[in-house]
């Protein structure tokens, strides 16, 4: 089974976010990055499928030079090859544009299964995999918790609302968006890290991918990014830890009357 897994690099979860000068996104400066959470589970799902079925796992990431570290991390965990999609034209794409680039690369490569995380922790579009499926003309499923490959088909378990789940079957190749927590993530071993150095990372730009610029034209635009206004009057309690504890307990007993 040939699996392409899409990995996005996002600012580390506890980053201090500063708005850029144009006021329409954050400053890139001084940030440290990590693999988007649900994408890491997608990678693990791909590696486990390969261990069971044989085949190949290709780690794909779109972004500037720094995203190579995400690809290298995936190679160290056991992916076989990397694809890095980099071009100034790929900067600040909307979900359609990102999916257009990824689907062009995936189509050129060929695959049985294309995996993405269910949404990114920065933009939170939750659309890349689904749009890629449409552009590739393939079936898809979202918020996937389990994958059972069959003969030319797949059976996947989807998470639904209110505690429900559902198994859905579809022909392969297909595109799946993976939910966090579906497996236990592995760490890269020292051997894996050493081995990764010899693995290939193919770089592709807009020309190599033969992408029509019209596909990358914005279909939505960010006007302004800002810290949301708080509407609730939160009582902030200050002081030393002991003072805070005493004050909070007093308020919980006498003001909120929860005890």
């Amino acid at each position: 089974m040939k699996i392409i897994v899409c990995l996005k690099q996002v600012p580390k979860n506890d980053s201090i976010l500063r708005i850029n000068d144009q006021g329409n996104w954050i400053q890139d400066r001084d940030l440290t990055y990590e693999i988007n959470e649900s994408d890491a589970y997608g990678l693990e799902a791909a590696l486990q499928l390969k261990e069971k079925q044989g085949g190949e796992v290709i780690a794909l990431s779109l972004g500037p030079a720094r995203v190579q570290s995400v690809i290298k991390e995936a190679l160290a965990r056991g992916a076989d090859r990397g694809i890095h999609l980099e071009d100034p034209a790929f900067d600040k794409l909307d979900a359609y544009g990102i999916a257009a680039v990824i689907s062009a690369a995936a189509k050129a490569e060929g695959f049985d299964l294309l995996l993405t995380g269910l949404q990114s922790d920065d933009y939170g579009f939750a659309q890349t995999g689904v749009i890629a499926a449409e552009l590739l003309g393939l079936p898809h499923a979202t918020i996937v918790m389990d994958v059972q490959p069959g003969d030319g088909s797949l059976r996947v378990k989807r998470e639904l609302e209110n505690g429900y789940f559902q198994w859905v079957s579809m022909p392969a190749p297909a595109v799946l968006t993976i939910q966090s927590g579906i497996n236990t993530l592995r760490y890269a071993t020292l051997k894996g890290i050493m081995g990764a150095k010899k693995k290939e990372i193919k770089k592709l730009d807009v020309t190599a991918l033969g992408i029509d610029k019209a596909a990358l034209a914005p279909r939505m635009e960010f006007l302004r990014v800002y810290v949301p206004q708080k509407s609730k009057q939160t009582q902030f309690i200050e002081g030393s830890p002991a003072e805070i504890a005493a004050s909070l307990m007093e308020k919980l007993r006498n003001e909120a009357r929860v005890f």
Partner: peptide, 13 residues
């Protein structure tokens, strides 16, 4: 965006 840490005003184009 950023899981509710920031808000963004957006328009369809």
């Amino acid at each position: 965006v950023f899981q509710g840490k920031l808000a963004a005003d957006v328009v369809p184009v």
